[in-house]
Nucleic acid binder design. Structure first.
Lengths: 230, 230
DNA sequence: ACAATGTAATAGTAATACTATTAACTTTGA
DNA sequence: TCAAAGTTAATAGTATTACTATTACATTGT
């Protein structure tokens, strides 16, 4: 990543945490170790008790930072989407050609994640795997509407809207820019998951990432109105 | 639905249940009421204890049928996909034109669900909502690979393959038939969810279902190779 | 009639999410 | 300088949930 991005701080909705984990050493260790643990054992098996043991503190200390483990998941996924957004905005900022810009955007949003040295306590590769496996659990809940009103999903929504806007910039008459944008973002996570667990349900594999598929998908629908039978 | 479908029994992998819920009155009530309860309170809040109370039996009776609530969810989602598959196969069976057949298939797979009187103890409209909200939780687990080996997801996989085959029948040179098929099935659930909870992230709403969007998406990519910059 | 099988009830255990309270440090300001 | 105030961490819980072991009752087929 570029030097300029080094000092950028990902802003998370303050309602998601009780005490900002970036504000203390223990907080950073909570983030660092929870990413590793959720990556290793999955969100269901992960508990604050286990985390407390691992950071050589205890359960209740973690509760000073996050109300419950669901909020911690919201923090992690928000951070991930915010981090992706920075990369996107930074990389495509000066691009004039809307087609090139959209192509670059899809590349950034669908590729496999690489380590970013700017955030030493966060393993972005593990975090990407967490998002692939757990992201939908962050909003497939009974509380989704109230949490949405509280702005817990704003970063993700902003990212979809950015993509949607770029789609419109390429074809202003296309009526499904929001649906296409959300399909690409969610679909990318899904294809990555299938590649790891249901290889027969995807054409993506180790040396064939989802990126070219989604590029073809998006630009086909933007360049054609298909012929259909009655 | 057509008369012929009335007596068709949806076949579920026998490893998913301990005792076949179709084999007894209590079993059918377990299915019937669990659908209503999960629809009403969500999968997280749903417990066998609450279900036992509701069916005027108790917790342990339910454990005679399902090992745990995750297995019950697998049963319900499997039933749903099996039910969809029957509708698909029955409706498109005699169709000769691959384009018309694919179009009809996408319509069936992406439309909103209507009540099916053939299965009196199953509310298909509620079940469809459950699938929209909970389906991904059935496979986003640590146990996905072993459960997959045990064939817990075969019906869903067969459905994706049917769609994939129909895509290939329209354009034999298209290299992403499996990815496109899985994108449509999962994407349809996602668009239905967004329509209910994140309306700004989709162009689908009450009087504009995902169906025309997905038809345009699929036939565009099958009819065009888009032009891209270098 | 009665054994075999199916169904239900009781009464638990273990693990998890979460909380109340106290103890120990840090900071700050006169 | 040093005690008060504020911050952070540790201890020791409770309530709920998922799940199980055991026993009792009901139904069915020969």
């Amino acid at each position: 990543m570029d030097e300029l991005l080094h000092s950028v701080r990902i802003q998370i909705n303050e309602k998601i945490y009780i005490k900002d984990p970036e504000s203390s050493n223990l907080g950073k260790r909570i983030i660092e170790e929870s990413i590793i643990m959720i990556y290793e054992m999955g969100f269901e098996s992960f508990t604050f008790k286990k985390l407390g043991k691992r950071i050589k503190s205890n359960e209740s200390s973690v509760y000073r930072y996050f109300e419950n483990k669901h909020k911690l998941l919201l923090y992690l996924t928000s951070w991930y989407w915010g981090w992706l957004e920075y990369q996107l905005v930074f990389t495509t900022n000066g691009m004039a050609d809307p087609v090139k810009k959209l192509k670059k955007t899809i590349e950034i949003l669908t590729k496999s994640t690489e380590e970013d040295s700017a955030y030493s306590h966060i393993n972005e590769v593990f975090l990407n795997k967490i998002v692939i496996n757990e992201n939908s659990k962050s909003y497939l809940t009974q509380e989704v509407d109230t949490e949405n009103k509280d702005g817990y999903f704003t970063i993700y929504q902003r990212l979809v809207k950015r993509l949607s806007t770029m789609i419109t910039a390429v074809n202003n008459d296309f009526p499904y820019s929001a649906s296409l944008a959300s399909t690409v973002l969610e679909g990318s996570l899904h294809q990555h998951f299938l590649k790891d667990h249901f290889s027969s349900l995807t054409d993506c594999h180790e040396n064939n990432h989802p990126t070219p598929y989604f590029i073809q998908l998006v630009f086909s629908i933007l360049q054609t109105t298909p012929k259909l039978p009655q």
